[in-house]
Design a binder for these strands. Sequence first.
DNA 1: GTATGTGCAAAATCTTTGCAACTGT
DNA 2: ACAGTTGCAAAGATTTTGCACATAC
Lengths: 170, 170
Amino acid sequence: MVNSTTSLLTTARTKLEEYLLKKGLRRSLERFAILEEVYSRDDHFDAEDLYQAMHQRSFAVSRATVYNTLDVLVDCGLVRKNQFGDEDNTKSRFEKGLGRQQHAHLICVNCHRVIEFCDPRLQLIKTTVGDTMQFQVESHSLVFYGECADEECVARTKAATASASSNSMA
Amino acid sequence: MVNSTTSLLTTARTKLEEYLLKKGLRRSLERFAILEEVYSRDDHFDAEDLYQAMHQRSFAVSRATVYNTLDVLVDCGLVRKNQFGDEDNTKSRFEKGLGRQQHAHLICVNCHRVIEFCDPRLQLIKTTVGDTMQFQVESHSLVFYGECADEECVARTKAATASASSNSMA
DNA sequence: GTATGTGCAAAATCTTTGCAACTGT
DNA sequence: ACAGTTGCAAAGATTTTGCACATAC
């Protein structure tokens, strides 16, 4: 059996190549190197994370290239761009686009952890809404905000809440 | 029958008052004036829109106050803060928080129009996920991205696509 | 060889913050 | 009176852009 991460990257590389050719864009080393970095990760990273990772990987690219390439990868569906409204308003968080259909996110409002889940009913809603509203749905973003059950997070939050309430009493 | 917009504002004002008292915050004129402006609108506005509207309404407040007050209103559930990842990454768009339970948004990737809809299955997903993942869900954000059926938008997009494809052929 | 892409730093945009003046309690 | 709020402008943070150099085609 083939390593699934590797085969995913292979598929992604092929897709990127096709996309670039179709659009008449150049197959620069940077674009493939960034794609490789993206597909080596399993988290939700921001542009700066990727920039730093590329430098540690000793394939130094500029921030401009990171942003440019992420745009290209989002455009061809190889990367998903998320705007979780939890911690930092202004920055986007990215993730692999392949191999994770109709998934959604849970965000802990306390520790900002990102948890993924799938629910087939999401697909049903998408279909219904597209039909009812005459809207050609291309993609979606479903995020639930709340409190996770992680022990450490719960303990830290409890402590913070306690001190906050004693503040407001002062 | 009572005007529903007015009664919504009345309810909102009461809720804000209760919240401010509970938190020991001041009931400043600015906060209530901004709440009134928010509840007089039915769109998805950004902080700058609100700032401009307050000035035209001849109740000039600073941007800092707009941001501060929006935070307060979001915190007490009277305003919803959205981060639609369509046009502008960096800015949030706000809307009334009262009188629109479990609603979601459709965003046209071409004209950036915002359409609202409701689907009871969203609530079902929320419950299931909360139980399955041991996650205390507090709020959600569901956005579908796609192409709307508005004539003008379709025509404009068709024209833009045609010129873009002729570009790539050049 | 030429048009595209990259790198750097400066610009642009949204949002937050420091400090003085003001105001609700 | 006093602590919380406001206003202003300056700082912060992320993302975009202009121009010179490099490179894929």
